[in-house]
Design a binder for these strands. Sequence first.
DNA 1: GCGCCAGTTGCAACTGGTTCGCAACTATTG
DNA 2: CAATAGTTGCGAACCAGTTGCAACTGGCGC
Lengths: 140, 140
Amino acid sequence: MSKERRNRLEQALRGAGVRVTRQRAALLGVIAAASDHPDAAELHARAVAAGAGVSLATVYRTLTTLQAQGVIDKLEFQGEPARWEAADDAHHDHMIDLDSGAVIEFTDDRIERLQAEIAAEMGYEIVHHRLELYVRKSRD
Amino acid sequence: MSKERRNRLEQALRGAGVRVTRQRAALLGVIAAASDHPDAAELHARAVAAGAGVSLATVYRTLTTLQAQGVIDKLEFQGEPARWEAADDAHHDHMIDLDSGAVIEFTDDRIERLQAEIAAEMGYEIVHHRLELYVRKSRD
DNA sequence: GCGCCAGTTGCAACTGGTTCGCAACTATTG
DNA sequence: CAATAGTTGCGAACCAGTTGCAACTGGCGC
């Protein structure tokens, strides 16, 4: 199923005139398998560990292309290197646990609506947005 | 009045064990006078233009200290160099006009409340957050 | 199947924003 | 005013990310 999804993706890429090279396939695999939000260096390490010969430069280039194809999303948190995640069909925001570094995803329609409303009030329309909550476990 | 405010600030810094040097005073002035959201290089240029002898390295160091004192806020938008603004008493979020690069400030209590609520639901408390709307003028 | 060639890759050198080591200064306190 | 801990300027270093270029390779066309 995950494999099937990957094949569908590869077809889509090919259709968009993007060659599916050994390196790109490897990265797609690594990203699909990741349940966390790794940065470029980490993805590179995992791809290499998986036996794929890929250079870091290519990882960066590939991430950019995959993003352009809408296959993955780039997350830029506070000063840390950019992280990446498989593009989910549904939009979601992020909550970053400052102690553990864990990234938790969430959505809230009410917030989405309010944002659009606020922008509209000022004569703007939202192209995209970023909402990050930097949090700590509340101890009580 | 702006001058008075600056003096109060300088006293506060001194009280916190932070020396008020010629360079820092100059930067405080430049930041207080700015109605936009300049980056370090721009602040440096303005300070120099105002006749203060300051190095870029010191600008960076000073910005960091002023931020630590809660006097200014650091804004990190999409890939651009960090921008800075005088810390306002009231928290606000930002809307970035993708065409003009203009930064518009706004607040909305409803969003603030919802954020706190969502975090609480998951057992977290918000340390700080970031909400940025990347927008374009809606033409109709 | 096979060759062609635009698209891709690896490497190393480069960039741009930001930080750091260190010796020379300087705001404060006594 | 002297002592001294905090600051500064400089250039070198850093770090994530990008790029030029020569060598490679998917995937279409035959």
